[in-house]
Amino acid sequence: MIKIALLGCGTMGNVHARAYRNIPNASLVSVCDIDKAKAEATAEINGSCAYSDFYEMLLHEDFDVLDICLPTYLHKEYAVKGFQHKKHVFCEKPIALCVKDAEEMIGMAQQKHLKLSVGHVVRYFPAYANAVAAVNSGRIGTPRLIRTTRNQGFPRWSWQNWYADESRSGGLMLDLIIHDFDWICHSFGKIERVYALSLKGKVLDKDHCMVTLRMQNGAIAHVEGSWAYPDGSPFRTTFEVVGTSGQIEFDSIKNTGIERYENTGSYKTVFSSPLCPSLDPYTTEIREFIDCVEQDTALKVTGEEALAALKIALAAVRSVQTGESIGASEAGIC
């Protein structure tokens, strides 16, 4: 049985806490949040102990894995603390805000012979995983044109509005569409060039970007992300993979299980696809990590892969700044 301590009881912390209920060889022994009420609420999910101080938790709890669901700017600091106390680390995405921090986390995990994995969960969403399986079984030939979108309203729902603060979240490229960068890079090949357009800084409380990726195998990807939809707009993701002999399309609004229309003061539409635990992507990603820790096997999502996705996101940010494409070597992607 692997014992876990969860740090950060916001949206993702609660998603992870619920995931542990369906991982038989994992026990969420404690949860911690500077807001004690939040910690107590999350602790109830698994009957864990609640803390509001990280050091108190370290002092009183015996655990193997530190699960970090803090805002991005705190990832490195707490991952390092985890490694210092001989804990394996599972960290929410993105791994960090800059290459240096990510490298420090990866280096320290290696040095201490501890495992570090990052929550690039899109790979585990059944629609995305099935598409890759279909591609790998040759159903559409060689993938050549990939389009993804990940669109929503401006994220105002977070603690201290930290998503909106570029210095803490990294903004749209690092926080949102890094999911698609990881999925594309992991599934379809390495990146040759990055070009990006973005609204960043042009309009208050809005961002929208389109990133064109050229892959080393010649394929082209168009990655779109939005924080420019009106408040209350349904979260929507789509992808299209065109191969040499076929194509695959997915749209989270069209291909959904539940459509919900509400009017609680303002009109709201929600589309969702509830999944059984064996298909739930958050459960799957954490279960795989726990198995790797327990059996000391190779990770499915490595720190290096998380760093590669971060480098693409940073290259996209840089392309917006310079107005030119950024090559793989300039972006440090090799």
Binding site: R144, L145, L197, T212, I220
Partner: peptide
Amino acid sequence: SVYCESGELIHNKGIEDCGIVNVQ
């Protein structure tokens, strides 16, 4: 201005069949 990535990627007909044209 325009930035474009394109190529003959899908159909193998000797002519470019894919393109993402970025415009400003």
